[in-house]
Amino acid sequence: MEHATPEAIKRHVKVYISVFVALAFLTVVTVIVSYLKLSLVYAIIVALSIATIKGSLVAAYFMHLISEKKIIFWVLVLTLVFFLALLITPALTGLEIRSYVS
């Protein structure tokens, strides 16, 4: 990206605009789906899937992760592993205890 030509930047700008349209569209979709009163499990699956797609679009294009250098990836992969461990382990311990109680 550092030595990008003006033409390349203009192409990037087009990508940014399309990503913006996609983000706005997905926002509307996720709101509409929420009015359908799906059961909680389906609602979670749909809403989080859409959020993940939107998040990936932002990270990949606005934050240039799609063309980023290896070192950044390594930092992020490491972070992601610990992020997931932190996200689910406390809830898993909580759920396991409750499974004994019931």
Binding site: A85, T89, T93, S99
Partner: peptide, 18 residues
């Protein structure tokens, strides 16, 4: 070191699997 932390918490009544 990121995935050993709950060994400080065995006495919180953690389940056997965890």
């Amino acid at each position: 070191s990121f995935i050993v932390w709950a060994h400080h918490m065995f006495l919180t009544g953690m389940g056997t699997k965890m």
